[in-house]
Design a protein around this nucleic acid. Sequence first.
DNA 1: GTAGCTACATACAGGTCTGTACCGCGTCAA
DNA 2: TTGACGCGGTACAGACCTGTATGTAGCTAC
Lengths: 198, 198
Amino acid sequence: MSKSATSPSVHGGAEVRDKILETASELFYTRGVRAVGVDLVVEKAGVAKTSLYRHFGTKDDLIAAFLDREDQEFWTKWDQVAEQHAEDARAELDAHLQWIGERVGRANYRGCPQINVAAEFPEGDHPARKVAQAHKREMRRRLKVIAERLHAASPDQLAGQLSVLINGAFVSSQIFEPGEATALLRRAADALVAASRS
Amino acid sequence: MSKSATSPSVHGGAEVRDKILETASELFYTRGVRAVGVDLVVEKAGVAKTSLYRHFGTKDDLIAAFLDREDQEFWTKWDQVAEQHAEDARAELDAHLQWIGERVGRANYRGCPQINVAAEFPEGDHPARKVAQAHKREMRRRLKVIAERLHAASPDQLAGQLSVLINGAFVSSQIFEPGEATALLRRAADALVAASRS
DNA sequence: GTAGCTACATACAGGTCTGTACCGCGTCAA
DNA sequence: TTGACGCGGTACAGACCTGTATGTAGCTAC
C-alpha cells in the first residue's frame, strides 16, 4: 500500500524531497547555481528550509543531486533513442545527433548543466565536479562503443572527436542560426566517421 | 619623457588601472567571477577600493573589461599565427588548431573565459554576455574567411563546424588524455575540410 | 602658493548568503 | 494514549557581498 521507501517514508514518502529537487533543478539551470539562494528554492518549492537541509545536508549536496538528476534524465533519453536503433550503429549515432541538435536549438536552452556547473565551480574537489566529470567520461565511453560497431580504425579517437563535437554544440547555441544545429552536427559526424575508416 | 596618456595621466598614468585589471583577470579566470569579491581583487592588487571603482564604475563593468582583455589577447595570438601562414589557408588552420590544442591541454587550463562567464550569468542583458557573444561570432567569421580560401562548397557551414569543434575543445579538457588534444583536433579538421569539398 | 587630481586607507551602510535553533502541528506506529 | 518523526514557519547568527563616505598624502599645473 505504502511506497515502501527505506528511510524517510512517513507522511507521503519522499514527495517533499522530489519537490525540492525539481524546483532547485529548474532554478539552477535557468538562473545559474550561484545566483540562486536556498531561500528562493524553499519559497518556490513551498517547503520549509529545515526540510531542504534535512534531505540534502548542504547546498553543495543539493547541487550534486541536481547534476545527478540531469545526468539520469540525459542517459534515459539516450537509452530510449539507442533502443530504436539497436541493429544499426550509424543510424543510432544520427538519431542521437538529431535530438541533441534539437535540444540545443530550443529557445530556452541554456547549455549543458554539467559544463555550466563546472564553469561556476573551478575547485576540483567540489562534489558537483565529480558528477560532471563522470558524465563527460560516460559520454566518450558510449561513443566509443558506437565507434567500435562502426569498425573505426581508432574507435577511441573517433569517440573523442564526436565528444568534442557534441560538447561544442552544447556551448555554441549562440552562434547557430535557427534550426541549423542538427544538419550541421550530422554532416560533421558524417565526415568524421568516413575519415575514421581510412 | 612622460607616458603621454590621454585622460588619467597624472601620477604614473594608467598603471593602477592595468594592475587592477591584470589581477582581476587572473582571479576571475582561476576561481570564477562570482566567487571573487572586489575586496579580494583590491587586496591582491595592492590598491585602494576607491581606485577600483573610479576606473571601473561597477563590478559588472570590471567583468566586461576582463572579457575584453581576454578577447584582445586571444585575437592577438590568432593574428600572430595567421601572419605566418598568409599564403596557405590550410597551414593556417592547422597552426591555429595546434596552439589552441596546446592551450587546452595545459595543466592549469580552466576553459574559455567567454564561455565560463556566459555560464555564470545566464541573463541576456549582462554587459559581459555581449562581449562573449561578439567573441564567438568573430570566431565563426574568421573561420569562414579561411573556409572560403579553402574553396569549401559551403564556407559558412564549414566555419560553423570548425567553430563547434573549437568550442568543444575549450570545454572538453577533462576528457582528453595528456597531449591528445592537438592531434585529435587537427585530424577532425582534416576530415571536415575534406568533406567540405565534395 | 594654491587648486585640482589621483591614490591610499578605513569605516560603514544595506543587503544577501548559508546554515542552525526553536516552536507548534499533524500523522503514523506501538 | 503516547512517543517519534517529518514538516512548516520564524528568527537568527555569522559571514560575505557591492558600493559609498570620509579623510589624508603626494603630484602637477597655473
